[in-house]
Design a protein around this nucleic acid. Structure first.
Lengths: 360, 360
DNA sequence: TGATATTCCGTTACCGTGCACGGAATTTTT
DNA sequence: AAAAATTCCGTGCACGGTAACGGAATATCA
């Protein structure tokens, strides 16, 4: 048989079909199909023969024929924090749209599930909903370590593949892939971009006050990376922190005003979350020359700040790209049975200035 | 009929097939297929009826069925300058690989044609070869305005779609799309990145001497953008130019050495082509502190210079992405009959530093 | 008017897989 | 050993579209 197969392999060359396998093994395509999807009702002998032949001939199923013949391929659940208007998570959600398009063609549709990013309880509820929707794949932006752990265990036991975006669990889990940026490094980069090889005496770090329950927060690592850079390259520099209230612009303005009367010489400002736009209105009304202001993420409001010339640079994580890639990866896995090239995908940290932001 | 169709449209909702159209028009799917690919042999009356019905029902062909039934879809020719080792065009060529993968699945294969970027004659020869290969689509990186003009006219007359990368013709042509970065703006951006809001007294502009025949050169516009930025933001600054020989490292070192003995205070260096790596060896052996060095393109050698800390920043055009997008666009058009969203695609100018270059 | 072109259109056999159905081959039961 | 239960496997249709083939309807010619 060996010889015969080799011969055939050479002759057929291009594309081996299920019929070829059937003919070569002396079985029918029905049987071949059964072993391909190993759904039983095949004798051990036949099974081995078919498997050998498949390997020998390098058979690869024709995806298009399969798609044409098959029914729907199920749905993909995307689990994200509930997006507020113009927020980071709204940007992330927007990635679903494009992925949905390509998914629809292969009979996969995408469903968004959102939870309150401050409440582990709401996350648990949403997980239950997701499970009862019987998805064939799940994309998760995890905020709560423990709850997520429980959730993915359940997914594993049901053989449902899942992909993390933005953050992943600390313990190595059975995730199909992860898409995000390295938080620590992004902070390091941020410092480099802020200082540009110069020295600064003082830097203003603006933080938002939030009593959030979430247990994994990339801004913590980001701040660590930033501080390490300063320690290494500019140890004489002082970091001065103020807190602002994201839902109270007046208080924010007052806080900034107070700061700059106390420290009028500060020229460098940084924020580690996606809300650098919060400080734009104040600086627009109270312009200061020679400012270097660096923030994160390509939110519309941030980009507006960039174009106005208030914000010097944004480091973009492109969350929309992350969820898009995550969904594509799942589709590839579910429909085409292809595993992603890499499990951990550290996405490129994009640097945005007023001069390169136009072209996306 | 109007009413009936509306009704059906509502009822069918999800996916309209060619059989539905046939049934609704009282014709056979053979006829419907003929109008869909307008290959004649259909009476005007039937043609109109089918077209109306298609529009009414929002019919979209099932790509997978089509792919399954159809034969090969032909080939795409990619016309680029012959890549030297580690050059810009080698990077561009590498984009073919990934596109080839997705193309193969739909029965389209990609073929690379290269010409000598210094010889219009060789370009003409290659064009002839391309035509005789009867491609169903062409990607062109044009160097010679006139010859390209002639070539695309020929393509047009044969109804072969073509896409430009890197540069396009000055006169609006019938190209399906263009992928590249805005040259002038990239120079402007480059100046902004080099100075970072500071002032400089002098800037070294390094150029290569090449007596090339090519008639469209993006580095010219790039230099213009750079100069305009300087004029606007830093008019007191002097640009000092030296020329280096790309194939003679020793002479390059001497030129740099001579320059820095004459002007030891210069801290800013820029090159407008993709060869910033040429000056890396000298600066590695003769380190100077506080240097700001900006160049273009993510060539391996340039990235190495970045990682060593010699080059401060690279502005990447990602030519590999450009040709990949170009090929995808052609495939979309040839196979799926979809036109690209935009004809002119100004790609994002990516800013690379030593801290964000790791993750591609 | 009958013969011959020409235009137009329906039929049909694929493309490669998925899957239901029923039947043959084999084993277990009585 | 015949009947019943299993195990195993082949057949055939469906999926939506392509395109060759040949025939019906109409137009053109003698």
């Amino acid at each position: 048989m060996e010889g015969l197969l080799k011969l055939f392999n050479f002759a057929a060359m291009e594309k081996v079909t299920i019929n070829d396998i059937a003919r070569l093994t002396g079985l029918s395509k029905g049987t071949v199909d059964r072993v391909l999807h190993n759904r039983g009702e095949v004798s051990k002998k036949s099974y081995e023969k078919v498997m050998a032949c498949i390997r020998e001939m390098g058979y690869e199923p024709n995806v298009y024929a399969s798609l044409l013949a098959g029914k729907g391929k199920g749905s993909i659940a995307v689990v994200l924090p509930r997006p507020e208007e113009g927020s980071y998570w709204e940007l992330a959600s927007s990635g679903i749209g494009k992925a949905e398009e390509s998914g629809r063609q292969v009979g996969v549709h995408t469903q968004l599930f959102t939870y309150d990013e401050l409440s582990a309880e709401s996350f648990r509820e949403v997980c239950a909903k997701v499970l009862s929707s019987k998805p064939s794949g799940v994309v998760i932006a995890p905020m709560f370590q423990y709850e997520t752990q429980v959730f993915v265990q359940e997914l594993s036991s049901r053989n449902i593949p899942y992909v993390f975006v933005d953050t992943k669990l600390e313990e190595p889990a059975g995730h199909l892939a992860f898409f995000g940026i390295p938080a620590y490094k992004s902070g390091y980069l941020c410092a480099d971009m802020l200082l540009q090889g110069e020295k600064a005496k003082e830097i203003l770090v603006v933080r938002v006050m939030r009593d959030k329950e979430r247990s994994s927060d990339p801004t913590i690592d980001r701040r660590a990376g930033f501080q390490d850079y300063i320690r290494e390259h500019n140890p004489a520099c002082t970091l001065r922190t103020i807190f602002v209230n994201p839902i109270d612009p007046v208080a924010t303005d007052e806080a900034l005003s107070a700061f700059f009367t106390d420290f009028p010489d500060v020229r460098h400002v940084v924020m580690f979350n996606s809300r650098i736009h919060l400080i734009v209105p104040y600086l627009e009304r109270n312009p200061r020359t020679g400012m270097h202001i660096v923030g994160f993420d390509n939110l519309p409001a941030n980009i507006a700040g960039l174009k106005k010339g208030i914000v010097t640079m944004l480091i973009a994580q492109h969350p929309e790209q992350q969820v898009q890639d995550a969904i594509s990866t799942l589709i590839d896995y579910i429909v085409f049975h292809r595993k992603p090239a890499r499990t951990e995908n550290h996405m490129h940290m994009d640097l945005l200035t007023r001069y390169n932001v136009e072209d996306y």
